[in-house]
Design a protein around this nucleic acid. Structure first.
Length: 810
DNA sequence: GTAGTTCGACTTTTT
DNA sequence: GTCGAACTAC
């Protein structure tokens, strides 16, 4: 990517507000309200735009950039705009281009991670890396850490790969490194000492592999800037206008990076250097901070004015996205978070439709409601592409998928990095990495015996030992098979692998002077997959899944072709970088349109005409794990708030009474957040109370297998009280006796049915509201998941969730 | 060294 | 209900 650093024209930067500039701005300001105009036109060292959900912040940001360029206050190359996702970056670039045309070329609009990769590729040689470094995604890191944990036998100290990885990541987000950790840690605790060693080893391994993990991309760039001020100055002079979106979700390392970039260049340097620090614009909404779990520090926004004295603050509170009903619900929910600046979104588009609520018996039942409703909306003219379904955890997507496939609703799952997580794709990428960055031992080890070449642990260790003795890389050791002292068959296999890698290297990384052909990545990958025998092995296999793997690899080859089309000069490294940093395949919404399924986190920054928020249950949202974390429940509430505010016109909230996870069914309760939405705003198609009523409510689940736990007519039961922590008020107690369960709209009954710890033993006779009398065969499970296996006199054998089934002991 | 089997743990969210 | 790791049998 040619991107020469253009000289900064000192002094001209601030001069743009002339009469011409003002005139030029008029069309950019069209349709903006007063605060929005101010946010576009304000000029000064620092600007904080507090932008509520749907307040048009993207519009403001893009117009701000456009006006800077239009008035010649800045060259495109002087602008650095940071967004949260690659997708958002692409959209912003498009919108700026739409405003002022191709002048926009040369701007850096990217994520923190992409921007840092660009910087690091240029500067890697400054500190012991080479510019063909590779990027470890979380899976790669985990694999490496797993090996280290094993080597150190760290599990004896209660250190799991996951916990080590999480801790290292947290530390890196705080800009701590292995040494600084070791200095401050309590090393008399053996577990701490082992962890410190792991951390140091991990970092050494990364360095040896010429690789950065996600957190390093940011952290090492900060380190680079601090250790080499002359390098930092290059970027400080270059970037005159820095804009950061979603500022509430920046972590300390990212904050430090921005801080480094907005220092005056040549700190205390030459006399003539009067370059001012870059101007900084940040946009954020503390109510939408949902990434504290990965180190986002809300203080970055709340203390912005302290960090940048004299900063201008602009508040955007008018919402242009949703109906008043949706906003009222969202405002009411978020209002339950204490410790927040009160901010009320408003709109002038009117009340709109009520929120639609639905309670299913099971997650399939719930999914069926969503599918039906999607179809109904479609018939009323809302395109699929304007509908989205949100859930808290990725695993919830499965039930939705199953029903959507059955109902022939076109959908796509956003965000899940599934494709690039598949084993065969990772293998193929490891082949590419082995060529692009031979120092990356992890990748070479990965492909060593893939396909099966008869190279096992023993041989692998032999190669590693040989490499160490000779002081060469693992990759280079492969070229010296005869010295390894392994059998001729294995020698032959290794030599073959070495030859294939060499051939691909010649294609993708031709000797200096020559330029690789645009198709080099495609050609190289094809060679690797074919001549390594990888594809052959899959084709020969009788495992039916391997057929799909071949197709996936074809798909990957197609991706390289697509990449070549978009980046004629792109190298293998560019390709690998893109793959590592682009999470979802950034599908452009195709014309036919599909419903989007995604987690609530992924939903941030997006908007749809119709939104389905599913699984609104306790232990899911707020997630059970969040209860133990400081600020957890509040963050969950913000997450729910983000989900609600994505909807323009139609908002649906739904839940299931029973949810299967771990293959076991257990009873679920409505989320406390539901209770926080004013009842009058929700029109319950089927409220948690209804689900218990005996009158004519049948399971809508298509699979209709009554054996999946509760049977068809399981009563809805939500136990109130007791389980509430956090800052909430317990659900109001219902006065009516259980049994009188006619619909009462817009109320979530606190206690519809709860058999509590009704004891049942084999042999007991029971009566079920629907199935009549029967005899208990056995009881399995525990607590809320206790299941009675009952043989009914007339209805036959059923499995029932004891806690909520409409049964009584005789 | 490999293939097949059983057992266990596991699911929070992402660049 | 799924994925991976450990174990066993060739």
């Amino acid at each position: 990517m040619p991107d020469p650093i253009k000289p900064v024209i000192v002094g001209s930067v601030r001069a743009g507000i002339g009469p011409a500039g003002a005139r030029l701005d008029e069309d950019l300001l069209a349709g903006l309200n007063e605060p929005q105009r101010e946010a576009v036109t304000y000029r000064g060292p620092a600007l904080l735009i507090v932008a509520g959900a749907g307040s048009g912040k993207t519009s403001v940001l893009t117009r701000r950039i456009a006006s800077l360029l239009r008035a010649r206050e800045a060259w495109p190359s002087q602008i650095l705009a940071i967004t949260f996702t690659n997708k958002a970056a692409g959209e912003m670039r498009e919108r700026v281009r739409g405003l002022i045309g191709d002048v926009a070329q040369g701007m850096w609009i990217s994520t923190f991670h992409s921007a840092c990769v660009r910087i690091l590729r240029r500067e890697a040689e400054q500190f012991g890396f080479t510019k063909n470094f590779t990027i470890y995604d979380s899976g790669d890191s985990r694999a490496l850490i797993k090996r280290l944990v094993k080597e150190h036998e760290a599990d004896a100290f209660g250190l799991t790969p996951a916990s080590v990885q999480g801790r290292i990541s947290k530390l890196k987000n705080e800009l701590a490194d292995a040494e600084s950790f070791a200095r401050s840690a309590n090393l008399s605790d053996p577990a701490e000492r082992v962890f410190a060693e792991l951390f140091a080893d991990y970092q050494r391994a990364l360095q040896r592999a010429n690789a950065f993990d996600f957190d390093d991309l940011i952290g090492q760039t900060v380190y680079l800037f601090r250790a080499f001020p002359h390098v930092a100055d290059v970027y400080r002079r270059r970037f005159r206008h820095i804009l950061v979106d979603e500022y509430q979700d920046t972590n300390h390392a990212q904050y430090a990076l921005i801080h480094e970039l907005t220092r005056p260049p040549g700190d205390g340097g030459t006399l003539l250097d009067e370059t001012e620090p870059a101007s900084l614009t940040v946009v954020g909404d503390s109510d939408q901070s949902i990434y504290a779990f990965r180190g986002a520090d809300i203080r970055n926004i709340t203390e912005f004015e302290r960090d940048y004295p004299g900063a201008k603050v602009v508040l955007l509170e008018q919402n242009y996205r949703s109906t008043q009903t949706i906003l009222d619900a969202a405002n009411a929910v978020i209002g339950n978070n204490f410790d927040r600046k009160d901010k009320k979104l408003w709109t002038d588009v009117g009340l709109g439709d009520p929120i639609i609520g639905f309670t299913g018996y099971s997650q399939h039942d719930e999914a069926q409601f969503v599918a039906d409703e999607v179809e109904a909306l479609r018939r009323r003219g809302i395109p699929y592409s304007e509908m989205a379904v949100f859930y808290r955890t990725n695993s919830q997507s499965r039930a939705l998928e199953e029903i959507f496939i059955r109902a022939a609703v076109p959908y796509k799952i956003m965000g899940g990095t599934k494709f690039y997580d598949r084993a065969e794709i990772k293998d193929a990428l490891a082949y590419l990495i082995a060529v692009a960055n031979p120092a990356d031992e992890l990748s070479v080890r990965r492909i060593l015996n893939r396909p099966r070449r008869g190279i096992g642990d023993v041989t692998e260790t032999a190669i590693a030992r040989y490499a160490q003795e000779e002081g060469i890389t693992f990759r280079d050791a492969l070229a010296n098979v005869s010295a390894l002292g392994v059998g001729p068959k294995i020698q032959q296999a290794i030599a073959q692998l070495d030859a294939v890698l060499a051939e691909a290297t010649a294609i993708m990384l031709p000797a200096s002077g020559e330029v690789a052909a645009p198709t080099s990545v495609t050609a190289g990958l094809t060679v690797l997959l074919n001549k390594s025998g990888y594809l052959d092995a899959l084709r020969r296999s009788k495992d039916p899944q391997d057929e799909a793997r071949v197709e996936n690899l074809d798909e990957l080859v197609a991706v390289t072709r697509e990449f070549a089309r978009g980046n004629p000069e792109g190298t293998v490294l560019d390709f690998l970088t893109e793959v590592a940093l682009v999470s979802d395949a950034d599908d452009l919404d195709d014309a036919s349109g599909t419903v989007s399924l995604m987690t609530m986190h992924t939903a941030k920054g997006l908007e749809y005409d119709a939104v389905f928020v599913t699984g609104v249950e306790e232990d899911l949202i707020p997630h059970r794990i969040s209860a133990g974390e400081p600020g957890g429940p509040q963050e969950e509430r913000r997450l729910f708030y983000v989900a609600l505010t994505r909807a323009r016109k139609k908002l649906h909230v739904s839940l299931a009474m029973t949810r299967a996870q771990f293959g076991e069914v257990s009873a679920a309760m409505p989320s406390r957040f539901l209770q926080e939405i004013p009842h009058a705003l929700i029109d319950w198609r089927q409220s948690p109370g209804d689900v218990n009523s005996r009158g004519g409510m049948k399971s809508r689940a298509l699979n209709g297998r009554p054996s999946t736990g509760s049977g068809t007519g399981a009563g809805g039961g939500w136990s109130g009280g007791s389980r509430y922590g956090d800052d909430l008020v317990p659900l109001p107690k219902r006065e009516r006796p259980a049994g009188d369960l006619t619909k009462f709209a817009n109320r979530i009954p606190a206690k519809v049915r709860d058999n509590g710890d009704l004891e049942l033993a084999p042999g007991d006779r029971i009566r079920h509201d629907d199935f009549g009398e029967g005899r208990v065969d056995m009881v399995t499970g525990e607590g809320a998941k206790r299941v009675a296996h009952v043989r009914f006199d007339t209805a036959g054998p059923k499995k029932l969730l004891i806690k909520i089934a409409p049964i009584s002991k005789l």
